[in-house]
Simulated scan of single mutants.
Amino acid sequence: MADETFDVARLEGAVCAFGVFDGVHRAHRFLIGQAVAQARELEKHAVALTFDIDPDEVFHADRLRKLMTNDDRLRALADTGVDAVVAFPFTEAFAGQPPADFMQRAFGAHVPRALHVGHGLRFGARASGTVADLERWGAVHGMEVHAHTLVQAEGSPISATRIRLLLQEGKVSEARDLLGRPYRIVGRVVPGRGEGAQMGFSTANLSVPPACLALGEGVYAGYARIDGETYRAAVSVGVSPVFSGRTDAVCEAHLLDFQGTLYGAALSIDVTHFLRPMIKFDTVDELIRTVLANIAWVRQHL
């Protein structure tokens, strides 16, 4: 963490990639890969520069939908081939500085050799800083700036916003292609209604911060991981109209062939298929038949 205890001298001469990197998707990994390649050529350290939180957690918390938790994002960045990940603490005061002050506070006298960014990067007070500001600052302080056009897929740039929109529409296969891996839900199992076992399909009620659940309502299939083991899973996102007003559970998963107790356990689910939208059933029996059919599909196809 690049707080007051961080030795900013570690950035001097390094080749850095800078961004929020929500999702650490294919376009992010391309940009970071360019920084790593230059660092290896110059025999310098490669560093991923980011923030400890998503800036929208400060400015747009009411509508924020992230592709991964902050901790998972930092772990994913560490797996991109860089030598270090440096996360600046994001605060309104830090973000509210003029672009030149923002850069000066970030690096001081310990300027990186090069900085790789997306060509549309905005930073500093009211997002007024642009790549041109970076280039002017870099020209004075001896830092190269490499602005990269976003990697495209099917004629459009790959971006976290594009992926979020796909997930909201239940298009998990298309989102996976842009992420480079399945979308993952991460949470902790908490007590739920307890009715699933009586219906023939016990479920784990997964507590997920709303900002970290980008999927639209519906029923999905995927792979759940707990304690190093993997299970096929049917996952419900949203509240069935049958239970409207009786529960606040928004993410429930049935793990096929799981035996044991899940309460309190950390659980992650890689979502691979959209099965159906949320349906208003006329009876509980109709719901049971449909859910059992969804579970049978998972057993047959995963």
Rank of each mutant, 00 (worst) to 15 (best):
P241K: 07
A233W: 00
A224T: 08
Y223L: 12
R246Q: 15
T247E: 06
R225K: 07
G218A: 08
L206M: 05
G218Y: 08
F243I: 14
D248L: 14
A224W: 02
S207C: 08
A249L: 09
Y220V: 08
V237W: 01
V235P: 04
G245T: 14
P209Y: 00
P241G: 09
C212N: 14
S207N: 09
N205C: 10
E229Q: 14
A234H: 05
P209L: 09
A224M: 13
F243W: 15
I226Q: 07
T230Q: 04
T230M: 00
A253L: 04
Y231H: 10
V235W: 00
V235D: 00
H254M: 10
Y231W: 08
A253Y: 03
S244W: 08
I226T: 14
A214N: 02
E217M: 04
G218K: 11
D248G: 15
L206F: 00
R225N: 10
P210V: 13
S236C: 04
A211S: 13
A234W: 08
A234D: 04
E252P: 12
I226L: 09
G238C: 07
E252G: 10
S240K: 03
C212Q: 11
P241A: 03
N205G: 01
A233F: 00
N205F: 06
S207H: 08
D227F: 11
A249I: 05
A253M: 04
V208N: 05
T230Y: 00
Y223K: 09
C212L: 12
V237L: 01
H254Q: 06
A211Q: 11
R232C: 08
S244F: 15
D227A: 12
I226M: 13
F243R: 11
G238Q: 04
L206D: 01
V235Q: 01
E217A: 15
S207Q: 09
G216A: 07
F243M: 14
A234F: 07
I226G: 03
V235G: 01
F243S: 12
T247Y: 10
H254I: 06
D227N: 13
L215K: 06
G238W: 02
T230V: 09
G228E: 01
Y220K: 03
G238L: 02
T247L: 07
V239N: 06
H254W: 13
